[in-house]
Amino acid sequence: MSTGLIFAGTGAILFAMGVAGVMLLAHLLRRILAFNLMGSGAFLILIGLAQRAGLVDPVPQAMVLTGIVVSVAATALALALTRRLHKLTGAYTLPATRDD
């Protein structure tokens, strides 16, 4: 088993943990961390799978750099909204929805 595959396998575990976290955790900060875990998992798989021949492929590396910037932006957005929600409602959890 090559190092690339170890990265990819770790990525699969991180992604699954992240998805479960986003679905299960009520505290918004934890949920944002879980989302980041999910992203990191996908990035590890993208890099790890691509270099299974042992050669470095610059294309997925560039894609991951782009993906990291996008996920930084998404995280910043989530944090900004969470802070605003906390300021307005005093809570770090989403209010329950009314079914209307």
Binding site: M1, L5, A16
Partner: peptide
């Protein structure tokens, strides 16, 4: 957990 397991098996097959 099941998803992670299936994914790892699929990636091993791919490699």
């Amino acid at each position: 957990a099941l998803f992670a397991f299936v994914l790892i098996v699929a990636m091993l097959e791919l490699s």
